[in-house]
């Protein structure tokens, strides 16, 4: 129950406040009743038991990955890291 999964908004039914999402290739319909702001098609949202909970900030995710890359590069340079 307690897993929230990133999913892409494929289409939006404004009348019923629902959206069709794609979760790693699996399509399903979710309610947008809990969304603080209406999402756009192409947005990634967190899905939990049939509801979209919030948008996921892709720029933020990319920034995190950049920091991991920098850490790896720094360790390679200094020869640190696991043997």
């Amino acid at each position: 129950m307690c897993l929230s999964i990133p999913s892409k908004i494929v289409s939006i039914d404004k009348e019923h406040n629902r959206a069709q999402v794609d979760t790693m290739g699996v399509g399903r319909e979710v309610s947008l009743d809990l969304m603080p702001e209406p999402p756009q098609i192409g947005d990634y949202v967190l899905i939990h038991i049939g509801f979209a909970m919030n948008k996921i900030d892709e720029a933020d995710a990319l920034e995190s990955i950049k920091l991991f890359e920098e850490l790896l590069a720094a360790q390679d340079e200094s020869g640190q890291g696991l043997p």
Binding site: P6, Y44, S64, I65, F68, L71, L72, Q75, G81, L82
Partner: peptide, 15 residues
């Protein structure tokens, strides 16, 4: 970005 990037084995070992 959403699925595989945060499971990168090299990054896991580095961190």
């Amino acid at each position: 970005l959403h699925f595989r990037a945060f499971r990168n084995p090299e990054h896991i070992r580095a961190l």
